[in-house]
Amino acid sequence: MLNIGKVLEELKESPYEEIVIRAPHCGVVRFEPLEPGARVSGASGQWKEKPGTCIAVIERERNKRPIESVDKGELVAVNRNLEGTFVEAQTPLATIRHFLSKDEVLKIILQKALYLFCAPERAKYYFIPEVEKNIQASGSKSVKVHDGLELFIMSRMKREAPLAYSGPGGVIYAKYFERNENIDAGKPLIGVCPESQLPLIEDVVLRVQTEWEERE
């Protein structure tokens, strides 16, 4: 049985994570005048339409791309030695310390509470078109799954294969993959909540909402 209180206490002891901001692609990098210790924010708004704090700008092929903080937190390091140089993809540019939000804490706890159906292999995963349609129309919680249901298309090495769900029946409470994203073997694809467990999950949500204090 999941001890929500204990998990919450553990998270409160170390309520942040360090996020490394990397160059998404090659280009010449120029940093914004931000010093370590500065507060930064991530994209916000209903559709994440408000950009986060701009940390640097990468230019390639006369296209400038702002590199924004992906979350709110405190800037702890900036690799200013790269100023004005051509950097390769994935080069670390800055590090921020981010304090966990309620949603993130909830996600961590739910991963312990839900039944996780994991990727059998590193691949891209898609819901089959009928399920995708339902999820787009009414959200993932509208989809009930059961053992043996053909639920995914697994795409790797340009080949596609159907993948059936195996596990207890229930609703898809959480989805952990994005379209066209490679998921490593063993990483969760969906979190399924058996109907009998719904009260427990609702309790988790309620406790996180009331007990977790978000920090700037």
């Binding site: 692609h25 090659c26 280009g27 390639r60 092929e61 051509f86 390769e88 993809a89």
Partner: peptide, 19 residues
């Protein structure tokens, strides 16, 4: 040798060609 994000990204390939 340059690390790129994708072999499919034309901007990236051309930026490396210039660099």
């Amino acid at each position: 040798l340059y690390r790129v994000s994708s072999y499919h990204d034309a901007n990236e390939i051309l930026a490396v060609a210039d660099a």
